[in-house]
Amino acid sequence: MSTGATTATPAAAEKARKGTSDRSRAENRLGLKLVAPAVILMLLVTAYPMLRALYLSLFKYRLSAPDDREFVGLNNYVTVLTDSLWWGDVFNTVVIMVITVAFELVIGFAFAMVMHRVVFARGIIRTSILIPYGIITVVSAFAWQFAFSLNNGFVNGWLPFIGEDFNWFGDKWPAMIAIMVSEIWKTTPFMSLLLLAGLAQVSEDTIEAAKVDGATWWQRLWKVILPNMKAAIMVAVLFRALDAFRIFDNIFVMTRGAQDTESVSFLTYRQIIEQFELGMGSALSVLLFLSVLLIAYLLVKLFKVDLASARGER
């Protein structure tokens, strides 16, 4: 009855306005409905467990001695943050992150330049560059572990300045090199593809113009190409850096953290899965999460680029 009365109002303008707002409201509702499953699922597996980790981190709680569970407040955090093992592992992880990303950036850029110029056999190059990307990290780790191995590896035989019986996994830095080689090998292709896409967006005309102006190859690279690729480089570095900070698979397979090659992720895994220290492990989980946030923040600050505009929305 009342509906009839309102629709009977002769004000056409109001009707139209109401129509659009109805439609936009409907669109709004539809949009929320469509994104709801993804959002719920993503939060279910991350936000809720993180909150639980936060809660568990306040306890001394060993899974194999459940009766001894006791509330210890922030004690676990104090223990971790005053422990040399934690800081040693943070150092290892940061070293791995900085070195691997630096190498990947340089090698990946060189690869991108080559791919950018190649006109024939693009399929072959593209296929081979995708193989390390697609290969299982554990497989890459085994391949390199065997390559560096004392009894079965070819590396000692091929490198002229390395003795036949040099044990790469017997000492910290050689073992770290082996781990980083596997990491760099596996992820450089991804980096180079991102950089290739960035390279494709640098206009040929600008480069030609610089050439005509007498700029050397080196000048063209630094003054024209790289500045125009800033967004692509930033995205590639950000993603790879955060990925490298989480390094786990290579360390698990190649050294299991021996010779002080442990990363923060591996330390967390060991506390929870090997020692069943759910309380201490949860505190490490929270700290690991905060570290990643901090690195993301620092990188974004460093590049001074609004992430959402570079990545999500145009």
Binding site: L150, N151, D165, N167, F169, G170
Partner: peptide, 14 residues
């Protein structure tokens, strides 16, 4: 053994 820091029962045997 040259692989002492990574040796186990199996490598010792070899």
């Amino acid at each position: 053994d040259p692989d002492l820091p990574v040796s186990n029962e199996g490598t010792a045997e070899a």
